[in-house]
């Protein structure tokens, strides 16, 4: 069976588009949970770029890097959600602009 192969550019472009959408969402949102979700989208897009590059050279290194990104995303989301809970308990809002003052 003749199979057409996926162009590497298309994979990288998909990663670029997803990263751009995540960045856009971080910029336009004021809700902290939405900003955290957007960071997840961006991390996932970066991992996709690693997988595409690893598939291009048929090496396992891209997938290894994705596992590390996954670990980092899991640690980041747990600490981020704990921070969101604290902010919500102290400020009673999810508005990121409410937490723009430092208390020394």
């Amino acid at each position: 069976m003749e199979m057409e192969t996926i162009p590497v550019e298309a994979g990288l472009l998909l990663a670029g588009i997803l990263f751009m959408l995540g960045l856009l969402s971080v910029l336009i949102r004021r809700n902290i949970i939405f900003m955290l979700i957007s960071v997840e989208i961006m991390l996932n897009a970066a991992g996709l770029a690693f997988i595409v590059a690893g598939a291009k050279w048929a090496q396992a290194d891209g997938q290894v890097m994705f596992v590390f990104i996954l670990t980092m995303a899991a640690a980041e989301v747990s600490v981020g959600l704990a921070l969101i809970l604290q902010i919500y308990h102290q400020l009673k809002t999810l508005d990121s602009d409410a937490a723009n003052k430092m208390k020394g």
């Binding site: 199979m3 192969t5 996926i6 590497v8 550019e9 670029g16 751009m20 598939a55 048929a58």
Partner: peptide, 21 residues
């Protein structure tokens, strides 16, 4: 994104068979 697209499309990578890793 357009800049990224321009850079990626100018590198000139050819499609090939993907091996399962």
């Amino acid at each position: 994104l357009v800049e990224l697209f321009y850079i990626i499309s100018n590198v000139g990578m050819t499609g090939h068979e993907y091996q399962v890793v």
